[in-house]
Design a binder for these strands. Sequence first.
DNA 1: TGTCACATAAAACAAATGTTGCAAAGGTGT
DNA 2: ACACCTTTGCAACATTTGTTTTATGTGACA
Lengths: 296, 296
Amino acid sequence: MLQNDPLRDHIISRFDGMSPQLQQAARYILEHPQEVALVSMRELSRNAGVQPSTMTRLAKFLDLPGYDDIRAHHAEALRFRADGFAARAMQHSENEQDMAAAQLSRRMLQGLATQIARLSEPASLERLAAAADRLAQARRVYVLGLRSCHSVAWHFHYVMALLGEKTIHLDGPADTVGDGLIRADAEDVLLAISINPYSRHSLELAQLAREKGLGIVAITDSEVSPLVGVADHAILCSTESQSFFHTLTPALAVSEVLCGLLANKDRTAALEALQRADRHLLSLNTYASAIPRRRL
Amino acid sequence: MLQNDPLRDHIISRFDGMSPQLQQAARYILEHPQEVALVSMRELSRNAGVQPSTMTRLAKFLDLPGYDDIRAHHAEALRFRADGFAARAMQHSENEQDMAAAQLSRRMLQGLATQIARLSEPASLERLAAAADRLAQARRVYVLGLRSCHSVAWHFHYVMALLGEKTIHLDGPADTVGDGLIRADAEDVLLAISINPYSRHSLELAQLAREKGLGIVAITDSEVSPLVGVADHAILCSTESQSFFHTLTPALAVSEVLCGLLANKDRTAALEALQRADRHLLSLNTYASAIPRRRL
DNA sequence: TGTCACATAAAACAAATGTTGCAAAGGTGT
DNA sequence: ACACCTTTGCAACATTTGTTTTATGTGACA
């Protein structure tokens, strides 16, 4: 992302004074600067989810004669960047500590990027597709992820809850984690997420589910993970990181892909469910786009 | 200039068989590839000194349906180069009702890999380092992430809790989310995670923290996120995905990098704390490496 | 010279683009 | 409740776009 861009700064500085629609347009432009130069205004507005006129109005709001000035500016920036690619000066931090920090960060991030990219190998893709199919045909999906894997399990459940009532998150205080399985049977599937070191509780519940006849889909970290033995489908993702800790980023990516695949099975239904959720949250006043005034 | 461009090679290989006007058009395109993507065909032809129709004829001569294919190709190449990274397929043009699962998965994963790789740009690295510094010098870190961002907040807290008692997770049932801030003051820092759409509750709590004098570090998705205004340090990560949903994978990666940086401030202390945590969990019999025999 | 094939220019065309005007909707303050 | 102002969606507008058609020119060969 480019830094010293006067128009960009101008948009940011005047952002707070914009109407919601103008903000939406501005936000899209800030986040997709290349697109501004590469596609027509109408297509841009379509992708940004606003009316074409909003783009023109945004231009006027920024004291520009018309939208073409916005485009011209971004086109110029793109020309510049494409040419002067080599001339990109990396600002070095003087601070030695910062330097080390930057290096560690970069190593971690590029490692993660590589691991996720590696998930797109054909073998993984097949496993993902198979797992998604199994989840799709289940009556209910019980989601289990304890300790570090809680984040993945919860996110999967949160997203799927937007689509419908199919998932049940196995979690709870006072050792009630497993209670959700009471009414589970062979028509259901357990999505179990666990990585090394494997939580004993997770494994016990997976085993219990197996005995109750549930199908089991696992997201785990190794071909020799104890989950592989009990699971019908296992998706493997690396958890190694350049830091002290294991990483759950690839696992989260896997979970998001599963959500995407499931939603893709019936796109219109998914869209409709999402719109319903949107309306519901809107009526609950759940979201805001600016810091709300403090209630007293 | 980029080399491996099939269309470019195609133009070159058929160049000798072209009429003079076609050659002139082709030559201009070869020498000004960016312009093809950035200006209209009529303007391009004007600059190239040929008739507009010549451009269309050139496209047909190259066995393409029309000129737009030439432009689309150059636009894609430019998108590619401007990012500096490989594998970019960010088009929403896939209206195919039932896209092949493998294809969707691959696009999602490669998109995520790209987004994470982009976080390792110098600007982001600096922000990460600054944020980590601020978190390190705080007495206590309050971690706030609601709704979809819960997964990230929780994971950060979970990892940091392995290192010590520095973090407090702002979460809880019965609308007690904010209670943790009761004893917070200017020596503390709030780590706020929120993405579009921004949860009103998160913003309110961030504002409250600000008023109590806490430092604020934000993980959010845009320069114009409402959090940017109240935060001392903001780290931006993309949330766009090729699926229906926003992605939190880059945000999780950011959080993991922050954990890594913090642990790195005092490696020996971190190592020791982790060993202590290990021993504790071991004595609790928390983990297992094989499916345990069922208790009766 | 005639005519044939082809390259080019000019004009005509439908489709799209960016812009503007207007009315409905939404919110604010009295 | 009312009037007032802003915001928004819609449709019409004149342009501009990429393409196709038509006309004009050019050179080769009998």
